[in-house]
Design a protein around this nucleic acid. Structure first.
Lengths: 152, 152
DNA sequence: GCAATTAGCACCTTTTGAGTGCGCTTTGGA
DNA sequence: TCCAAAGCGCACTCAAAAGGTGCTAATTGC
């Protein structure tokens, strides 16, 4: 269903929060106090983002996460790739070619199926959308004015 | 997993085939002889495209489908909407707002979550990609040179 | 009338997504 | 020194979505 998963949504919100903090450490608890998200799942997501090198983690009692790069340097593609896995762009999966037999391994395929082209456009968009562009406009509206959430 | 479903893939291939035929009737069998796709599933997809008004159907022994509009007039958005359902763009689902209570019904929401913006960009891309742009370049390579497929 | 085709519905199976259980490690501070 | 708060890692369950198939009409050209 051509849409972002919850994991990616959570990841983006977390990254937005970290971007707002500009280098300061933010814990999962803090993020879930700002946004009403399931703590554990957000923790899983942050962990994955850490593995992908998008955030740094600080362990210990006053630990948490920080952005590993500037918001301009983080793209939607990075986030989606970290949380949903990379698209199968490397392998040619045009049914036409598969039917002819072979290809699978071939690095450069002469036939590009329509689907392949759509995928390319999609990922071009993702790679060109930065975290900064998601944070910058309008997202600061009264976020701190909302109360805390239960310890979910 | 932020990717097109098989149904959409099949639908696009079918539409590409119909576009190549320029108004001529093409049956599901014919489409599945060109592309090695599961006949029944393709039939389901074509049916849905017919309901969405993207193709016209002709019943009977020499029946099949034709494009209901010119390839320039069919967008990726149309196809995805027909086969995967429309995106929840109308309802504001920012967790921030939901937490504050309300919104759900409000037609115009002042707070736009990052996810909302991503969705908008995604659908802008889909709406601006026409079937023509997927057909026009490079897709005509030796498609007729491949043998038929078993009656799957 | 027969064969080829679309129409409609219901069902099954597999995969994916979301969330949780549970215990471990790290670290700051009382 | 101990404890609470935080991250780490794995595995597991539950539900929803995706993909495909069975079966039975209805339509229409030959």
């Amino acid at each position: 269903m051509l849409q972002l998963t919850k994991r990616t949504e959570y990841g983006l919100l977390a990254l937005v929060h970290l971007a707002d903090r500009e280098g300061a450490v933010a814990s999962v608890r803090e993020i879930c106090e700002r946004f009403p998200l399931p703590k554990r799942t957000v923790a899983e997501v942050l962990k994955d983002l850490q593995h992908a090198g998008l955030v740094d983690s600080i362990r210990g009692s006053s630990g948490g996460y920080t952005l590993a790069r500037a918001p301009e340097q983080v793209t939607l593609g990075d986030v989606v790739r970290a949380l949903e896995g990379a698209p199968p762009l490397t392998t040619c999966e045009s049914p036409i070619v598969l039917k002819g037999g072979g290809c699978e391994v071939q690095p450069m395929c002469p036939i590009k199926s329509p689907i392949q082209r759509v995928r390319e456009r999609l990922w071009q968009m993702l790679e060109h959308t930065t975290l900064r562009s998601l944070v910058s406009k309008g997202s600061h509206v009264s976020l701190g004015a909302l109360g805390a959430v239960e310890s979910n």
